[in-house]
Every structure is written in structure tokens, then in C-alpha cells.
């Protein structure tokens, strides 16, 4: 627990990391000052892009004692304001799932390889980032815990599949090898409570370690303090549950 007589320090900067197929992408990296060892968290940004909210969230994880790394999943779309770049990604039908997973796994490998690392790395994402975080946790061995906040289209119908998103993430659930925390809102339309219930049923069937929380009076994006969907009470509780979950799984058994 922090007390006011402790020293605090955070270093935050843009760096380059190796992502999908060995390609370089930019990432926002924030870490506590000190020798560590620290657990790591990769942040999978949401549909609105590598934006101010995600930079602030990266800092928040660092201030909580995590090596926090948020890769720009739209790096290959081009450069401009975060909104302009995200709009172009939206028009292209989003990023390729393989590419996103490759970039996120690269971010995880970067954190795990740091001398400051305690050997444990989690992944967090909201909106499309929640979906990407779930995909990365299922399809790679890069992560020791995953937090999916209202990730839409984890369950996709055949009609929703595209060349960029060719497989419903739910189909990879059998490969999920780390604990999962899911935070959702009852008023969300993507994912709906019915879709979350079906996802939970599959996790149960496969004997996965997970905890889901469905918040009343909340919809999509209830953490976003700059948007009308922000819900103060649910957001505070959600952040608390998130840090409790990550602390449990990323600090225990660390090297």
C-alpha cells in the first residue's frame, strides 16, 4: 500500500517494438522507476485508436506498479491525429486479427524480456481491444492473465466473419491458458448480456478459470470518463476488481 512518505516515479515514452512478422511498430511504454521486479501489462487499445484515454490508462497501470505497454495497433494504417488514423482503420474494416495478435504478443515478449520484469505479463483491453486481448490470450502463450472489458464480437456469426476477422474468437476458447476477468454492462448492445452468458457457458464447459461481472445501469465503455456512457460507481468498482485480479495472478509465483 502506498503511503505519503514513499518515493514515486514513472517514466513514460514512445518506443519501437517488434510486432507481427518481425515488423516494427510504435508503442507507449510507462513503467515505475526503480529496479523492480515488476509485473507487466499490455494494453490493447479500443476502436477509437491509440488515443489519449489509452495513454492515460497506460500511465495508470505504471503508477500501480506495472510495466505497461500499449502498442499502436493502427501503426500500418498511417500517421496523423489518433482520430484520423482510427477513422481510416474503421473504413478498412478494422485491423487483421493475425496482425493484432502478433503485435500484442510482441509487446508481451518485450515486457517479459526486460530485466525489470518479474516474469509475469497480463493483457487488458476494452471494446475491440477486449476482443483482441481475448484473442491474444487464447492464441499465444504470451500472457498470464487477461482482462476483457466489454469486448464486442467475441462471439461472431458466420455472416460477420471477414477476411480480416475470419474466425470467431469464441472458437479459440479451448486454447485459453490463463485466468480471465470480464467486465460488462447490462445495457451494452455489443456484447449483449445474452452473448456474455453464452461466452460464460463455453468457459464453464471447458473448465476455464474466469470471473465475469455484469454491471447494472451501465452500457458500453463505462470506464470512459470523457464519454456520456461513463458510470462512476461501476467504473470505480471495475478498476478495483481489475487491479485485485491482476495482483492475484501477476504477483503470485513471480520470480
Amino acid at each position: 500500500m502506498y503511503t505519503t512518505d514513499q518515493y514515486e516515479g514513472v517514466l513514460a515514452e514512445t518506443i519501437s517494438i517488434i510486432g507481427h512478422q518481425g515488423e516494427t511498430v510504435y508503442a507507449y511504454f510507462a513503467r515505475p522507476l526503480g529496479a523492480g521486479p515488476f509485473p507487466g501489462v499490455v494494453l490493447a487499445h479500443h476502436m477509437p485508436g491509440w488515443d489519449e484515454w489509452y495513454k492515460e490508462a497506460t500511465l495508470r497501470f505504471a503508477r500501480q506498479g506495472y510495466l505497461a505497454l500499449c502498442p499502436n495497433l493502427y501503426y500500418r494504417v498511417g500517421h496523423g491525429s489518433p482520430e484520423d488514423v482510427a477513422a481510416k482503420a474503421r473504413a478498412q474494416g478494422g485491423v487483421d486479427d493475425d496482425q493484432a495478435v502478433g503485435d500484442l504478443a510482441g509487446a508481451g515478449a518485450f515486457l517479459r524480456g526486460l530485466p525489470l520484469s518479474n516474469g509475469k505479463v497480463g493483457i487488458f483491453g476494452t471494446c475491440s481491444g477486449g476482443r483482441h486481448a481475448y484473442l491474444a490470450a487464447c492464441r499465444t502463450a504470451a500472457f498470464d492473465a487477461v482482462v476483457d472489458c466489454w469486448g464486442g464480437r467475441v462471439m461472431m456469426s458466420d455472416e460477420e466473419l471477414t477476411p480480416r476477422q475470419p474466425v470467431s474468437p469464441l472458437n479459440y476458447t479451448q486454447d485459453l491458458a490463463c485466468p480471465l476477468l470480464g467486465l460488462f454492462g447490462e445495457e451494452d448492445s455489443s456484447p449483449t448480456p445474452e452473448q456474455v452468458a453464452l461466452h460464460e457457458r463455453e468457459l464453464k464447459r471447458l473448465g476455464k478459470t474466469y470471473e465475469f461481472h455484469m454491471y447494472p445501469n451501465a452500457g458500453h465503455g463505462f470506464f470512459y470518463q470523457h464519454r456520456p456512457n461513463y458510470r462512476q460507481e461501476q467504473a470505480v468498482d471495475g478498476w478495483n476488481k481489475l487491479f485485485t485480479f491482476l495482483g492475484k495472478h501477476l504477483l503470485a509465483g513471480a520470480r
Binding site: D84, A87, R90
Partner: peptide, 30 residues
């Protein structure tokens, strides 16, 4: 580019978004 997805600024969960662009000029030509 016409989409029905999350807006960046309008106070809705989803919006009908139209981006009039010139892709040859980069993401900022919008």
C-alpha cells in the same frame, strides 16, 4: 467512408459516421 460504429465525439454509443477523404493524401485529409 460510411459506417455505423462508435463515433469519436457525438454523444451516442453508435452513430452514422461519414468520412469524406482523399486516401492518397493520408489519414489527415478527412
Amino acid at each position: 467512408d460510411v459506417s455505423y460504429d462508435h463515433p469519436f465525439n457525438a454523444p451516442f454509443e453508435h452513430a452514422l459516421n461519414i468520412d469524406f477523404v482523399n486516401e492518397s493524401m493520408g489519414p489527415g485529409a478527412r
